[in-house]
Design a protein around this nucleic acid. Structure first.
Lengths: 193, 193
DNA sequence: CTTTGTTTTGACAATTTGGTCAAACAAACA
DNA sequence: TGTTTGTTTGACCAAATTGTCAAAACAAAG
């Protein structure tokens, strides 16, 4: 596989194994197999498992954060802004439903990994939410609750898919449809008719 | 330590390590230390790590499910019923915030572990929700969305506590207060004035 | 065709983890 | 007191996993 950028390829595959398939404790061998390289190659490109994981973790975190920042800081009518925010969330979770879980699990072993999160644009956005609540465009509540609501209502159904499919007796496509409707649910709950 | 019920003690400690502290891949040694017994004792009482985990998993699942069923089938005014449901959820997540996550992670390796979930009382409750929506007591939507909303709005903030504390720049007590307000948020969003 | 620097590979060592076992132990009992 | 029963322990082994290394394979440049 010379010539093609193996390093990038491995990163993408590993990311998929971890964050898409949710194989939280995938071994180097599993990742190597998935990427169709030998395990030794993994150590050649990335020193250790830890190093590989950290790289993916960080890269993914930054990427996601950048997209969120992007949406939150763009000048747009508030409702559209929230709409875009939800879209970004949906896309992200479609691709990497387990990323946040990893973040949280990892936290117990690297408690400082959170500290890098950029809080500034969130603070600005919270203020913006408050303003639009004043104007009556949005249901009134603590803006933090508003954000927590959006994240929760979108992310959790993705996480719990295996369980909820059974609990509510739904087929794969049923559940996929349900997920598609989530944006609508979120918007209707928070924006008064 | 004869006389005292070591087995039960170990179960409780292990459960705490797994589901409360979120140490998703705690080793036998870690659990042994936490329970202040030797690792060999763990194998004496429970054959293997797998067996120990399964026992906790199953026991916890049944316990939680029983509490949910209990609430959903009790005859009560609908609004109080939902109120109780949320209370049960809150208590459960207060104690074992990571239980559901384990369930999901585990799913990849034991896909059939979900099949035991009791779907009957959920189906009944979904019908009940629909009826009360007809009467206009609850915001109208697909009852499945209603349930997913409740679970999501309550559970996710518990899971994401480490991240959200940082993201929203909150102290421990600030966040604890936020969590206390979640029931109110859920109710206000779904029950019209 | 040879040289050069990079990539890939297989064999190996080190570590971690889970599980077994026989011996030691303590309490209950004959 | 000596025996039985259930519990605890430390010493082992086996399997899985990670990481290293030197040699081989390779592609491109000279």
């Amino acid at each position: 596989m010379r010539g093609t950028d193996t390093e990038l390829h491995i990163l993408q595959v590993a990311r998929k194994v971890f964050f898409t398939e949710g194989k939280i404790d995938a071994t180097m061998q599993e990742i190597a197999d998935a990427a169709q390289v030998t395990r030794t190659s993994l150590n050649y490109y990335f020193r250790s498992r830890d190093s590989l994981f950290k790289k993916i973790h960080e890269q993914s975190g930054l990427e996601f954060e950048a997209r969120l920042n992007d949406v939150m800081t763009r000048t747009l009518p508030f409702r559209e802004k929230v709409d875009n925010l939800v879209t970004v969330l949906l896309e992200q979770l479609q691709r990497y439903p387990y990323q946040e879980i990893f973040l949280i699990s990892d936290f117990h072993y690297n408690p400082d990994s959170m500290s890098k999160v950029n809080k500034h644009s969130m603070q600005l956005f919270l203020k913006e939410i408050a303003e639009h609540m004043e104007k009556g465009e949005v249901i009134k509540m603590n803006p933090v609750h508003f954000m927590v609501n959006i994240f929760s209502l979108i992310a959790y159904p993705f996480l719990m898919k295996p369980l909820y499919k059974v609990l509510f007796t739904m087929t794969e496509t049923d559940y996929a449809n349900l997920l598609k409707q989530r944006k609508d649910v979120v918007m209707k709950l928070h924006f008064p008719e």
